[in-house]
Write a protein that binds this DNA or RNA. Sequence first.
DNA 1: GCAATACTTAACCAAATGGTTAAGTATCAA
DNA 2: TTGATACTTAACCATTTGGTTAAGTATTGC
Lengths: 128, 128
Amino acid sequence: MVKYQDDPLSSTFAALADPTRRAILARLALGDATVSELAAPFEMSLPAVSKHLGVLEDAGLLSREKAGRVRRCNLEAAPIKQVADWVSHYRRFWEAQLDSLARYLDETAGADRQQQEEENHGRGRDDD
Amino acid sequence: MVKYQDDPLSSTFAALADPTRRAILARLALGDATVSELAAPFEMSLPAVSKHLGVLEDAGLLSREKAGRVRRCNLEAAPIKQVADWVSHYRRFWEAQLDSLARYLDETAGADRQQQEEENHGRGRDDD
DNA sequence: GCAATACTTAACCAAATGGTTAAGTATCAA
DNA sequence: TTGATACTTAACCATTTGGTTAAGTATTGC
């Protein structure tokens, strides 16, 4: 079936699709750490964490340098920038939603305010 | 093993970790479309596309409304905004890298240029 | 009503994922 | 050199994923 291989964005998204790995990245955002330090907060075995680190490393999100018998892990943000770039193409869509909400609020607040109570069944989004 | 279930960010990332699904979203960014229209560019079977749409819908990235015997699919950008928010926490890292790269280039271009060839084993990243 | 259209659902398969335990490797410390 | 430390690798397992084909379900048009 052969997935990704030369599809960096897919492997980045796949790497990020796991809460353990995102927690590891969050930890690394505070500063570099050894494998044991990264593993400590999790209940899973060390090999399991090691695999997660492998996935992150394959996705280019993490680099490791051996220093004696410990491996120092560093966050590598470049693939996240790729994600940010991909995401940016869709920004207008959620902003459009906010825009039309704002426009709606403007309109109702502006001219015909008395209509508000008659037809406040409108576009009832209040979870933003 | 029970994954995600109540981890929207994970299921969003997982949904985005497939080029077919990202292509579908890109198509939907041009306007809504029926299932057949979405399926047309791909060589895979219709059920396969249907499954992809199911994954996107489960992740909240797509909504479908039945109109007669066709299903109109719409892009839903809210989960992508969640991704953008997550990503934003890491923005400073790639900006920092670009900064330090710029600083490094400034330094090497500036003062001691002759040292470059003696120690260009340094931070040998050239794949940016 | 009957056939075509536009799907979805079911059943199946191979490969990938995420975990385990056990064994291996490299380094430090005594 | 021997043992502990810090991992990684191997082998295994259950579940998920992404595809297939075949069958099922609405809806439309004749």
